[in-house]
């Protein structure tokens, strides 16, 4: 079974996203509420993909992603970045980071599962 790690400081979004990926796609989901916790969990669990919010207190999404890129264990895990910044320039800036895809808030559960499938490289 594919394992997804969700990193988001918002409890409700973590819960909705987790339910979406578990119920619709049938994946196994674990969550972290900060970038630092996300890195720890990613190292311990080695998920197949990561869903990560951009704006988080402390270490934000892009910083967390860059930290992960420095780690040989985590660099190859695809990251789907979740953001409320909808301008095309933001999309390009985030894509330039090297993330697998960018998903804009608010998303619906089917789109999330679909996007994550694409990120993982197979159809749900």
């Amino acid at each position: 079974m594919r394992r997804i790690l969700i990193i988001d400081d918002e409890d409700d979004i973590r819960e909705v996203a987790a339910l979406s990926l578990e119920s619709i796609a049938g994946w196994q989901v674990s969550t972290a509420s900060s970038g630092a916790e996300g890195i720890q969990k990613a190292l311990a669990e080695r998920p197949d993909a990561i869903l990560m919010d951009v704006m988080m207190p402390g270490m934000d999404g892009p910083t967390t992603f860059r930290e992960m890129q420095k780690s040989p264990e985590l660099a190859s895990i695809p990251v789907l970045l979740l953001t409320a910044k909808v301008q095309s320039v933001d999309q390009r800036r985030f894509s330039d980071l090297g993330v697998a895809a960018v998903l804009f808030k608010p998303f619906d559960p089917l789109t999330l599962a679909d996007q994550m499938s694409t990120v993982l490289g197979w159809t749900a």
Binding site: E10, D12, I13, V16, A17, L19, S20, S23, I24, M55, A84, K85, V86, K105, P106, F107, D108, P109, L110, L112
Partner: peptide, 24 residues
């Protein structure tokens, strides 16, 4: 403002989407 408005809407849309899809 964009971030603060979109964040709760994400939870609302997500919850409604899950209920509408009949997953529960």
């Amino acid at each position: 403002v964009s971030h603060e408005l979109r964040t709760p809407l994400t939870s609302i849309r997500g919850a409604l989407g899950l209920l509408s899809a009949g997953v529960h």
